[in-house]
Design a protein around this nucleic acid. Structure first.
Lengths: 87, 87
DNA sequence: CCATGCGCCCATTGTAATACCGGTATTCTT
DNA sequence: AAGAATACCGGTATTACAATGGGCGCATGG
């Protein structure tokens, strides 16, 4: 096994993450936020639309910083998994 | 320019992140922590040794959860740049 | 002495993230 | 109507991650 494909759960988490970030962005433009977080607007757009399921830690960290979000809360909401019991 | 190479700053951040996680692991074995976080032991080793500079958000989040670390504090320490680099 | 366990290192492989391009659609303003 | 601004999408390119397997060294204890 090498670099496993994204699982459906990871994809769903990515979508929840994107929605969360978009909501937090509010009325600010993608350009503004992306510039402040030093990421490409394309990357921000893909993350917000859920097309990037597992972004880099630093990417999310800088975005959360710009948006005034707590990383712990972000993860708590994002990882609020539907029905994943322990394996 | 597509998918820019890692900057020296990102590499340094990765090393700080690795040291932090290793310190937090304490006496637990890599296998134990990796298993609990559902990541490969090699991946954990690479992160701890700083050979993976920008791991996925979910990877660090699960690791931090297993290690009992706050993501906000992790990022605060990791992103605390010494600012000695001149461009 | 030899086996076991732990950590490290290297090479390889497959997939994904990041970034740029061109095109499209909508909205708002002039 | 024309223009700018914003956001979406498909395609493409480049780099990096995640995981596997093998080998290595060093302890510990059988």
């Amino acid at each position: 096994m090498v670099r496993l494909p994204l699982t459906p759960e990871e994809i769903e988490r990515g979508q929840r993450l994107g929605s969360l970030l978009r909501l937090a962005r509010g009325e600010r433009s993608m350009f503004e936020v992306a510039l402040a977080a030093r990421v490409s607007p394309e990357t921000l757009r893909k993350i917000e639309t859920g097309r990037v399921a597992t972004p880099a830690f630093s990417t999310i960290a800088t975005l959360a910083q710009v948006l005034g979000l707590s990383l712990d809360e972000v993860w708590a909401q994002v990882s609020a998994a539907p029905a994943t019991s322990h394996r």
